[in-house]
């Protein structure tokens, strides 16, 4: 793979290169957290040193919270023509790129979801490695290092970044920015790189032992702790909103007042909501909160392996810091392990 160097003194020129490819989006502070937001001024593009966990993951670019999927008239359904801007997303951590790879797989398996694809091809991913914080556990989910799924990937080695080129688009960027991306990557860079990797590996502190969890999900299916969690759960659905691999959506039709037209809207849904498994005639396949929690963890830790060969938890730690009542991968695994 092609590796280049970007000197930190040239970092402030990065925006000018990226903006030629599309809108630039990067983490910006919001309260005590961060969100991916559109960067309008070059000085607002900040490559944070620490691990940045935005409130919502990058799935919001690929399958927006709310999306108009069809316009209709009494005798016609039509896909709306929308101009999707190209967006360069800067500062995407490895675990989120893993999540993106999972989404790619999910949205192309069996049937291709065109709404996803149309947005996916308009997204340029500039990944960035950073030292973990106390909630990140991607080292336990094998998602702390990323090999594919990005266009460019930055590793901070002090005075400079090593820049991995992961795609054609990535290559276009470094070619256009040839005055700041240097091909002069001497062999002794490897030493710094190894030292960084080692430092990063040791910096992970969150210890969630996922070994054997798949079987435990099966064995502990009727365990009492599910009911205890069910009693605690607020059914707020935040866990599913912030999870980078949660994809469920609901669909609703709306008509315009006094017009013979309307639109079909798709928006994020949550399996924590009561109506999630409700069918005609008011039969609910998952009436209790405990059943719905079980569904989520079955899907994350067990079922996804059956479908795609790996669990769909990427260890980003969002559920840990988001759930107000501490029902998260950590506490569930703790209970599973007894």
């Amino acid at each position: 793979m092609r590796v280049l160097k970007l000197s930190k003194k040239d970092e402030n020129k990065l925006y000018d290169v990226l903006i030629k490819f599309g809108e630039v989006w990067a983490p910006v502070p919001k309260g005590s957290r961060y969100v991916f937001d559109k960067i309008e001024k070059k000085e607002d593009l900040i490559m944070y040193n620490e691990f940045i966990r935005t409130i919502l993951p990058i799935k919001k670019f690929l399958m927006p919270q709310e999306l108009n999927i069809l316009n209709f008239k009494p005798s016609k359904y039509e896909k709306p023509k929308v101009d999707i801007p190209t967006r360069v997303i800067v500062g995407v951590p490895p675990c989120e790129i893993h999540a993106l790879n999972i989404l790619d797989k999910f949205y192309t398996t069996d049937f291709v979801d065109n709404y996803y694809m149309e947005r996916r091809e308009k997204v340029i991913i500039i990944g960035k490695s950073s030292l973990p914080d106390e909630y990140l556990f991607s080292h336990k989910t094998n998602t702390s290092i990323v090999e594919e799924g990005y266009d460019l990937f930055f590793i901070d080695l002090g005075d400079y970044y090593l820049v991995w080129v992961g795609s054609e688009k990535g290559d276009d960027i470094v070619r256009l920015g040839s005055d700041i991306f240097s091909e002069d990557v001497p062999v002794d860079v490897a030493k710094d790189f190894v030292a960084y990797r080692e430092k990063r590996r040791k910096a992970f502190t969150k210890d969630i032992d996922l070994e054997g969890v798949t079987d435990l999900m099966e064995l502990m299916y009727d365990a009492d702790f599910w009911d205890e969690f069910g009693e605690k759960c607020l059914s707020c659905g935040q866990c599913t909103m912030v999870c980078p691999t949660c994809t469920c959506f609901n669909v609703i039709d709306e008509i315009e007042l006094n017009k013979d037209e309307g639109h079909r809207r798709r928006y994020w849904d949550s399996c924590m909501f009561k109506d999630y498994s409700l069918v005609a005639g008011q039969h609910n396949f998952r009436e209790s909160r405990a059943e719905r929690l079980k569904l989520w963890y079955t899907h994350k830790l067990k079922a996804f392996i059956g479908h795609f060969g790996s669990p769909s938890c990427v260890g980003c730690g969002r559920c840990i810091i988001t759930c107000p009542v501490d029902i998260n991968v950590e506490t569930v695994v703790e209970k599973l392990k007894g």
């Binding site: 469920c248 609901n250 069918v279």
Partner: peptide, 23 residues
Amino acid sequence: ERRMKCGTGKCGHCIIDYRYTCI
């Protein structure tokens, strides 16, 4: 029978363990 919104294994509602009722 399950709740379904897409028919293509994407909306998630019809999931049973690792299988989608619609696919």
